[in-house]
Design a protein around this nucleic acid. Sequence first.
DNA 1: AGCTTGACCGACC
DNA 2: TGGTCGGCCAAGC
Length: 112
Amino acid sequence: MTELPDYEEAVLEAVDAIPEGCVMTYGDVAEMVGAKGPRRVGRVMSEYGAATAWWRVVRAGGHPPVGLEGEALAHWRAEGTPLVGGVFGSGRVDMARARWDGTAAGERVSGV
DNA sequence: AGCTTGACCGACC
DNA sequence: TGGTCGGCCAAGC
């Protein structure tokens, strides 16, 4: 079912490869899939993101896409994603811990 | 062919 | 601390 261009399919796969409790920035995904601009990833996500774990993809500051902050926050809390200020944070992801390298899937820094 | 917009990023003030 | 500016690449009009 490769009806989508290479990079779009790559983006969806990269997002799907992100383990629960981890997130990646648009720029990271862009570089991971070989995309040149992070904006391209955002566009792909806006179109096909509904079919993928879009909430695992956030901006460089740990902010979710506008209009979906509540949705993303709910997903993060459900998956145990580290949030700034605890689970009752201000709707921001703790990039320091939640940022996924994309190297070892399923393996993440345990504890602190 | 050119301008505007966009789920962005980084730097600057 | 938070807002603003410029840059990047692609799609839409």
